[in-house]
């Protein structure tokens, strides 16, 4: 053990220090803080589960709404990403590389820029409306594009789609052609080949993509703030308010841990369900 430590510790020390000081300790402190309470503008550090009870009672509808929106984004984006990756791997031929390049091009970066561009595209005097008016398709601008849940889904979908394509494409790329051809030669229908050979081999990639998009959507606050409008009270916005206007950091911490815990449960359940449904019958 000592020998092992002497060999590895100097190398992992810097990254472990960063991990402990900037992640483990702050998260632990945040967790402890979630059991504190603000009583008549004063902080009480006597541990209580009051904040968690308040999250489930007073903010239940926002919690529900957040996970509904995040699930819609997660499912829609993962499905489209799978279709696009499937097309690149099996149908696109020599167009595969340029298509993959499109996904890579929009992968990293431009978080704030992308949200802002969607705001200007969907706005009342925005790109979409003025373009439709210019070609004479509509007379009056359509106000229904922006400030609603659909705008949140489109904007976050646009940001997460490339992130979701790559893990699925990576999984599909290692699916070999020979077993597929073999199954087809033995008379398997296309759907059966897909369900029993292709899908089981990329379920980890699918689950990973869903996890990425779902977590991102459930934890985001800038998108609902900029394009979501007044009725889209997603948890991210409410959490952030506790640290600003509301000045109730302990409640905000309890909200954050609740969101993360529910995310873990949903992703875990989905992983189990996926594995069960794709189990090949012996």
């Amino acid at each position: 053990m000592m020998d092992w430590l002497r060999r590895h510790l100097p190398f992992v020390l810097p990254s472990t220090t960063i991990f402990l000081f900037c992640f483990a300790a702050p998260v632990a402190y945040f967790f402890v803080m979630s059991f504190w309470q603000i009583k008549s503008y004063r902080l009480s550090t006597d541990p209580t589960a009051h904040n968690y009870i308040e999250v489930w009672t007073d903010y239940f509808s926002s919690l529900w709404y957040t996970f509904a929106v995040a699930s819609v984004i997660g499912l829609a984006v993962t499905t489209v990403a799978f279709g696009f990756a499937y097309f690149i791997r099996f149908k696109a031929g020599r167009w595969g590389t340029p298509l993959l390049f499109v996904a890579l091009l929009t992968l990293f970066g431009g978080y704030l820029t992308k949200i802002y561009v969607w705001k200007t595209i969907l706005g009342q005097s925005g790109v979409l409306n003025t373009a439709l008016q210019a070609i004479g398709a509509i007379d009056e601008p359509i106000t229904a594009f922006l400030y609603n849940p659909l705008a949140v889904v489109i904007t976050l979908g646009h940001y997460t789609l490339p992130l979701a394509i790559l893990p699925i494409y990576g999984a599909l790329r290692s699916v070999e052609d020979v077993p597929l051809r073999g199954a087809r030669d033995l008379g398997a229908r296309p759907w059966r080949v897909f369900k029993e050979i292709v899908l089981p081999q990329c379920q980890a990639g699918i689950l990973f993509s869903f996890t990425l998009t779902f977590l991102f959507a459930a934890g985001d606050y800038v998108t609902p703030l900029l394009v979501g409008g007044p009725y889209t009270s997603m948890m991210g916005v409410i959490i952030q308010h506790q640290f600003g206007l509301r000045f109730n950091a302990p409640l905000g911490a309890a909200m954050a841990f609740t969101v993360i815990a529910v995310c873990m449960i949903i992703i875990g359940a989905l992983g189990l369900a996926l594995r069960q449904s794709l189990k090949v019958r012996a």
């Binding site: 991990f19 992640f23 300790a25 998260v27 985001d220 959490i239 952030q240 911490a253 954050a256």
Partner: peptide, 26 residues
């Protein structure tokens, strides 16, 4: 070791930002 060190990526940026803000000001 790898699972531990890559854990921060799973935390939504909002939560990471707020934990660090609370920790640093604490």
């Amino acid at each position: 070791t790898m699972a531990l060190l890559t854990l921060p990526v799973m935390l939504p940026p909002l939560v990471l930002g707020l934990t660090l803000l609370s920790f640093f000001s604490g």
